[in-house]
Amino acid sequence: MSSFSLFILAALLIAGGIAGFFLRKDLLTMLLSSEVALSGANLLLLVFASQASPTEAQAAVLAILTVAAAEVAVALAALAVVIREKGKATEDIVSEMKG
C-alpha cells in the first residue's frame, strides 16, 4: 500500500463525488456525492500528513467528520421538508423555490 495508490483512491473518490453531483438530478444523491468527495479529501489530508504530523491530521479529520455529520442532519431535515411540500426532491424543484 503505497502513497501513490492512496492518492489514486482519494482522486477516484473526489472525482466520483464531483461526477455524481453534476450527473444526478435528485437532491439526495447530490448530497451523498458531496459526502463522497469530502471522504476523498479526508483521505488525501491523512496521506499528506502521515509523514509530518499524523495526530494533527487525525484531529482535523475528526473535526471535519463532526461538522459533516451536523451538516447532513440539517440537510436531510430540509430535504424531508421539500419532499413533504412538493412530493419529490429534484434539482428543478429547488431552483423554482423563492423566499
Binding site: 491523512l46 499524523p54 467528520l65 442532519a73
Partner: peptide
C-alpha cells in the same frame, strides 16, 4: 494506514449513522 480509531469512527458514524439516515 494505522489510524485504527479513525477507521472505527468512520465505520460507526458514516457507514452506520449517516447512511441509515440517508
Amino acid at each position: 494506514m494505522g489510524y485504527t480509531f479513525l477507521g472505527a469512527i468512520y465505520l460507526l458514524i458514516y457507514a452506520g449513522a449517516v447512511v441509515v439516515a440517508f
